[in-house]
Amino acid sequence: QYKLILNGKTLKGETTTEAVDAATAEKVFKQYANDNGVDGEWTYDDATKTFTVTEKPEVIDASELTPAVTTYKLVINGKTLKGETTTKAVDAETAEKAFKQYANDNGVDGVWTYDDATKTFTVTEMVTEVPGDAPTEPEKPEASIPLVPLTPATPIAKDDAKKDDTKKEDAKKPEAKKDDAKKAETLPTTGEGSNPFFTAAALAVMAGAGALAVASKRKED
């Protein structure tokens, strides 16, 4: 009698068979294992007439167990938060979910874009303008004329002030004479000065007065 010990991944146990020799028993056991989907390494112990079949655990490639991950970057252009961060993800969709959660946790809500070549996400917050509040242009400074500094008044001594007054009066006198001369030139000519009769009478009076003066002097002599 021969014995078979099964150490399979899905089947474990023992069974026996009657055979004329070990070779015949081995054929029977291998057919049995094959029928039950057991495929492994076989050993035989002649002392105990025991066969053992052991399935090795399937070696799984690490790449099959853990999907390949890629590093993705997020650029934040927020109104109050600006910067960059990264995450590792199996695909862009997974990275996007992580980045949007990160942005939401930090109060950033804007327009999202993605560049597959650089594996970069960008979120930009738009500045909202309040309706009716149009931007006002800064007032242009008016052209200013530079002020001319005033010349301080120079105090005048009393004596100098009197001299100035005297000079002013002396300066006025010639001007007054000139005014009188002008008035004389502009006076109208009277009839006496221009009538020949009056001129002859005046000469006769003057001659008579002269003769009287000569006669009076002779009497005195």
Rank of each mutant, 00 (worst) to 15 (best):
A23V: 14
Q31M: 08
L4M: 06
K27P: 03
Y2W: 11
E55N: 04
Y2A: 07
A19L: 06
Q31W: 05
T50R: 15
W42Y: 01
E26V: 00
G8W: 05
G37P: 01
I5K: 11
D21Y: 13
D21I: 13
T16G: 15
T17W: 10
T52E: 10
D35P: 02
E18M: 11
Y44L: 06
L11W: 04
D35H: 11
V20S: 10
T17E: 05
D46K: 15
T24F: 15
A23L: 12
T15H: 07
L6P: 07
A22F: 01
Y32F: 14
D21C: 13
G37C: 07
T43S: 11
Q1Y: 13
N36F: 03
Y44S: 02
T54G: 07
W42H: 00
Q1G: 12
D39V: 15
T17C: 11
T52A: 10
A33F: 02
D45I: 12
K30F: 00
W42L: 00
N36G: 06
Q1R: 14
Y2N: 03
T17A: 11
A25M: 03
Y2T: 04
T24H: 13
V20W: 13
G40H: 00
T10S: 08
A22P: 10
Y2D: 01
E26L: 00
Y2P: 03
T15D: 04
N7H: 12
Y32D: 02
E18A: 14
Q1H: 12
D35F: 09
T48L: 12
K3Q: 09
N7Q: 11
A23W: 15
A22H: 03
K30T: 00
T16D: 06
E26K: 00
G8L: 04
N34I: 02
T15R: 10
W42P: 00
K3S: 08
E26Q: 00
N34T: 03
D21P: 10
G13I: 04
G8F: 05
A25Q: 03
K12W: 15
A33T: 04
G13T: 05
V28C: 12
T52K: 09
A33P: 00
E18I: 14
N7R: 13
T17L: 07
K9D: 09
K49W: 09
D46I: 13
G13H: 04
Y2Q: 04
T43N: 09
E26C: 01
T54V: 08
K3F: 08
T24P: 12
Y32S: 04
D46G: 14
E41P: 08
G8D: 03
K9Y: 10
A47I: 13
D35V: 14
G40N: 01
T43V: 07
D46H: 15
E41T: 15
D45L: 12
T50W: 15
Y44G: 02
K27T: 03
T48V: 11
Y2L: 08
V28F: 10
K27Q: 03
K3A: 08
T16F: 11
A19D: 05
N34A: 02
K9T: 11
F29M: 08
T50H: 15
G13F: 03
L11M: 05
K30I: 00
F51P: 00
T10G: 05
T16M: 09
G8K: 03
V53Q: 03
G37W: 07
T17H: 10
A22M: 02
G8P: 05
K49F: 08
E14H: 15
L4A: 07
T16K: 10
Q1I: 12
N36T: 07
Y2G: 02
E14Y: 14
L6E: 03
T50I: 15
Y32L: 08
K30M: 02
K12S: 14
E18T: 13
T16E: 08
D46F: 15
I5V: 10
N7G: 09
E55H: 05
A19C: 09
T10P: 04
T24N: 09
D35Q: 13
Y32I: 05
G13P: 03
E18W: 14
L4D: 00
K30H: 00
D39I: 14
T52S: 11
G40L: 01
A22T: 06
E26H: 00
E14D: 07
F51Q: 01
T10C: 06
T15S: 07
V28Q: 13
V38M: 10
T48W: 12
T15F: 06
T54I: 07
T10D: 06
N36V: 05
A47C: 12
D21A: 14
T54L: 07
K3G: 07
G40R: 00
E18D: 12
A22G: 07
F29G: 02
A19Q: 09
T52G: 15
K27H: 03
K3V: 10
T48F: 12
K49Y: 09
D39P: 06
T54H: 07
A23N: 15
V38T: 04
L4T: 07
T15P: 06
V20G: 11
G8R: 05
I5A: 08
F29C: 07
Y44R: 02
G40W: 01
G8I: 03
D39T: 10
Y2E: 01
F51L: 04
K27G: 02
E41A: 14
T48D: 10
L11P: 03
A33G: 05
T17D: 05
A23H: 15
K9H: 11
T16C: 11
N34L: 01
V20Q: 10
Y44F: 09
D39S: 15
G13M: 03
K9G: 08
A25K: 01
N7C: 11
D21G: 14
T50P: 02
T10R: 06
D39H: 15
T43D: 08
L6N: 04
E55K: 05
V38F: 05
T24W: 15
T17P: 02
V20L: 10
F51E: 00
D35I: 13
K49Q: 11
N34K: 01
G37Y: 07
G37L: 07
G8S: 06
E41Y: 14
L11V: 06
A23I: 14
T10M: 05
K12F: 09
E14G: 07
T15A: 06
D35M: 13
T50G: 10
K30W: 01
E41F: 14
T43I: 07
T15E: 07
T16Y: 11
Q1W: 13
L11D: 03
Y32T: 04
K12E: 09
K27A: 02
D21F: 13
G37E: 06
L11I: 06
K27D: 01
K9W: 11
E14I: 13
E55D: 04
Q31C: 08
A19F: 05
D45T: 14
A19K: 14
K49L: 09
K49E: 10
E55A: 05
N7L: 10
A33M: 08
V20Y: 13
D35G: 15
T17K: 11
Y2R: 03
E14A: 09
K12V: 11
D39W: 15
E26W: 00
E55M: 04
T15Q: 08
D39E: 08
L11Y: 03
D39A: 15
V20D: 08
L11E: 04
E14W: 13
D46L: 14
T48E: 11
T24A: 11
G13Y: 04
V28N: 13
A47M: 12
D21N: 12
K27L: 04
A33H: 01
Y2I: 05
F29S: 06
T48M: 12
T54F: 07
T43F: 10
L4E: 01
D45E: 10
D39F: 15
E14Q: 13
T10N: 06
A33I: 03
K27W: 02
D21W: 14
A33V: 04
T50F: 14
K30P: 00
Y32K: 05
G13V: 05
F29A: 04
A22Y: 01
V20A: 10
L4R: 01
K12I: 09
K3Y: 08
F29R: 01
L6C: 10
E14M: 09
N36K: 04
E26S: 00
D35R: 15
V20T: 09
D46Q: 15
N34C: 02
